[in-house]
């Protein structure tokens, strides 16, 4: 009896599959798709893990964990936890940093995109990006030993003397200013330096994406260069610049090491910018490895969850805004 295997007809799906596999393209396609899906799966996994690992803290404390309160409670001995002081610290330092960084960053972006001679543009770009490449701990070290005594303490003293007694504002500027200078203001200053590269890079890209016709039209109408920038270019790129601000805010919220080193790490009732405090990231950095009780660990993870959700939302909004500017501008409009 002769052994004879009948070849499958060419059109059979099994045959086509076998050919595709032996040719290698089908496995290749699935491998690269799997790698692409992995990125998305990782994000979902992070969210799922934070949600699962904070289950007990969420059921024990409910929404009271996050709501503003005048008598915050963070007591690892008695297992009482509330996150408000950290949320407040994060929001106050980040928003202050944004307010300070915005004019500087937009100024640099305008200078780089519109004014500076072409040979200067690239080195300037590098230098600003170097600001982002310096490790966070180095900022912290420099902050503790150099920046706090020489800049932050005098500025804080000045602010205290100027606004400390002004009704309304005094909440933010009550003293006394700590001797070391470690305070929320110090954290805000360090954050300002650290988010300048982010806001600058996006704003510069937005400005460069605006069609030249807009500039030419404004200049032809007799506007000065500054009027062109202020009244035409900035409004045109407004949503992109808003996206840049939000991206910067996202970076500021998550910044850990430098802030932990200069913010003073103390839980107290004061709402003042000049007093030491904590941020969400810095409380995790300081206490997570030493957390003993389950509820303490879970509360810290819940703070991580809040941080994760906040940055997720901010990132989505920012990308959408930047993308909306890019879409508004036809590709060929700018040569």
């Amino acid at each position: 009896m002769t052994k004879y295997i009948h070849p499958l007809p060419q059109t059979h799906w099994l045959s086509r599959l076998r050919r595709a596999i032996s040719h290698g393209d089908l496995p290749w396609k699935w491998i690269i798709i799997a790698a692409s899906v992995l990125v998305m799966v990782l994000i979902l996994a992070v969210g799922e893990m934070l949600w699962r690992e904070s289950a007990d803290a969420r059921s024990t404390f409910g929404f009271g964990f996050l709501t503003p309160t005048l008598t915050p409670d963070w007591d690892p001995v008695n297992d009482e936890f509330q996150a408000w002081p950290f949320i407040y610290g994060t929001l106050l330092t980040s928003l202050t940093a944004i307010v300070l960084a915005l004019p500087i960053s937009v100024g640099i972006a305008i200078f780089m995109a519109e004014l500076c001679p072409p040979w200067l543009r690239m080195p300037l770009n590098w230098l600003v990006e170097l600001l982002a490449a310096i490790p966070s701990v180095v900022y912290g070290l420099w902050g503790i030993f150099v920046f706090l005594p020489t800049v932050v303490t005098p500025v804080a003293e000045g602010l205290f003397e100027t606004f400390g007694t002004v009704p309304g504002l005094s909440v933010l500027f009550t003293g006394p200013v700590p001797v070391s200078g470690a305070s929320r203001l110090a954290a805000a200053f360090i954050l300002t330096i650290m988010i300048i590269p982010t806001i600058t890079a996006v704003t510069r890209d937005v400005l460069l994406a605006i069609p030249t016709s807009q500039r030419e039209a404004a200049l032809a109408l007799g506007a000065t260069q500054w009027e062109t920038i202020w009244q035409v270019l900035l409004p045109y790129g407004l949503s992109g610049i808003l996206g840049a601000i939000i991206l910067g805010l996202g970076r500021a919220l998550g910044e850990t090491m430098a802030v932990t080193m200069v913010i003073g790490n103390s839980i107290e009732g004061s709402a003042s910018l000049l007093r030491p405090g904590y941020t969400m990231a810095s409380i995790i950095a300081n206490e997570f490895a030493e957390a003993v009780t389950k509820l303490h660990t879970q509360s810290l993870i819940e703070i991580g969850l809040v941080l994760f959700v906040l940055t997720l939302i901010l990132n989505m909004v920012a990308r959408f805004l930047v993308w909306s500017v890019a879409r508004k501008t036809p590709q060929e409009a700018r040569a």
Partner: peptide
């Protein structure tokens, strides 16, 4: 998937590093 990939790459780079540490 390409759009989702680009978006999730951006989102992943925006997650605070301390949260990655928790993960």
């Amino acid at each position: 998937l390409g759009v989702v990939l680009r978006f999730s790459t951006d989102v992943l780079s925006g997650i605070p590093s301390i949260v990655i540490g928790l993960f």
